[in-house]
Nucleic acid binder design. Sequence first.
DNA 1: GACATTTTTTAGTCTTGGCTAAAAATAGAC
DNA 2: GTCTATTTTTAGCCAAGACTAAAAAATGTC
Lengths: 226, 226
Amino acid sequence: MQTISREDYLKAILKIEEESGTVSNQALVEKLSTRPASVTNMLHTLADAGWVEHLAYKGVHLTQTGKAIALSTLRKHRLWEVFLVEKLNFNWDEVHQWAEDLEHVGDEELTNRLDAFLDHPAFDPHGDPIPTAQGQWSDGRNLLPASQADVGDRIQLKGVVNSGEAFLQHLNRLGIKLGLTLEVLQALEFDGSKTLKWPDGTEASLSKQTLQNMLIERVEIKSNKR
Amino acid sequence: MQTISREDYLKAILKIEEESGTVSNQALVEKLSTRPASVTNMLHTLADAGWVEHLAYKGVHLTQTGKAIALSTLRKHRLWEVFLVEKLNFNWDEVHQWAEDLEHVGDEELTNRLDAFLDHPAFDPHGDPIPTAQGQWSDGRNLLPASQADVGDRIQLKGVVNSGEAFLQHLNRLGIKLGLTLEVLQALEFDGSKTLKWPDGTEASLSKQTLQNMLIERVEIKSNKR
DNA sequence: GACATTTTTTAGTCTTGGCTAAAAATAGAC
DNA sequence: GTCTATTTTTAGCCAAGACTAAAAAATGTC
C-alpha cells in the first residue's frame, strides 16, 4: 500500500486552500486519490499535531505551523525536481514521483545547501515558484493561460496549470517546453483552439484544453491591437 | 519508532557475512540495534521474499537475489554519500544518516544517472568501494591498519574501519582526512601508540585503537628496513 | 550426559496509515 | 419544511515492522 505522509496532506491542503479557499474532505480525497475515511483519520492526526484546525463537517485549514511545514515540504520537493532535471538530465515529466520521495529526506540545512548548489532557483522545472527558506513564495509574475492569448501575440511558456505526466508528455510530443516562444496565428472561435507557429516555422493547432493548461507571458503584442 | 527496512537488513547481513562468514540473529541485533524478536520476524519476511535462506537456529545467508539487492542498496547509499560530500559540502561524519534515507529513493536508472553525474566514483567519502551497476565491488587495494605501519614509513589514509560519527569527528579534530600522508616517527611497544608527523610539520601521538581503525597504504618504506 | 547459560523463536501487543461498510450529518430539490 | 442525495464520520479490521515476556532450542561445562 502506498502511504501518504502527513506532509503530503499539508501540501494538498495548502494547494486546495489557494485554489478554492475552502478545503473539504472530498477535495482531499480527489487530490490524493484516497478514501474519505482515510482523510478524516489523517485530519485528526494533523489536528492533534497542531498543524491544522479541523471542524467536523466544516472543513480544515492550516495553522501557522502547518503552513510553514507545507511550504518547507514544497520547497524541498521543487528543489529536488530542479536537481533531477538540471543535474541528472531527467525530463520534466519524469521527476514528480522521485521528488515526492526525496522531499522527505534531509533537514533545513540540507535543503539550503541543495538550494545553494542549484544556484537558488526561483522556479521548478514546471515553472512553479520555489518558496524561500523563510517560507516566502510570492510569484511576482502575472501569467495567463494561453487560451487568453490573441492572434498576433508572441507568447512564451512560463508554466503549466496541470503538471501531470500525461499532459507534460503531450507537450513533449508537440515539442513544447518551458521558455519556448510561439506565435498565435489563428484562433477558432467555435472550439477555442488556436494555431501556433514554432520558432522553426512549423505550425500546429492546440485544443482549448491544452491551451488552458499552459501558462504564458506575452512577449510581444500585435501592434494593431490595444 | 525508527523502522529498519528490509534493504537495511540485507546490507547488514552482507557485511556480517563478509566479516565473519556466518550470520547469527545476535549479530544482526547488535549491528542494527534492535531486538531478537524483530530480527526473527524480519528474517521470515526476507525468506518469504526469497532474499535469504534461513534455517531456524542455524543462521541466515543471502540468496543471489538478496545479494544483488544488498549491493544495489549499498551502491545507492555510497553514491549519495559522495553527492552530499562532493556537491553539498558536508563533512564525512555528517552524511551517513541522510544517505540511509536517500538510498531508498529512486530506481537503477536514477542511480546510474547519479553515478554519471558524480563521474563514476570508485570510493565513497570513507574510502569504502562503491559497487558497480553490475554488482561488482572488488576493492583492488590492499589496505592495512595504521597500527601495522613501521617507524619510518610514510603512510596515506585510504579508508576507515569504523565510520561512526564519533570516530570520524575524532579524526577531524586531529586534522586527519582521506588522502592525508603522515610519517611514522616513533612506535611505543607497550601501548601500541605511534607518534606521527603531519605534512605541516606538527606531530601527535595516536592510540592503538585509533590506528587500528585507520586503513592506510604505505607510500614510502624506510630504506633501511626490509 | 545432565544442568546452566545463551540464543532463538513464539505469542501477544502497539503504532501508523490504509481500507470497507454502515451510520450520522449536511445540503439540495420540490 | 420534508425527502433525497451527498458528504463526513464512526466502527472495526488489515499490514508492516517494532516491542516485551515467556517458551524452546542450542551450546558449553563438568
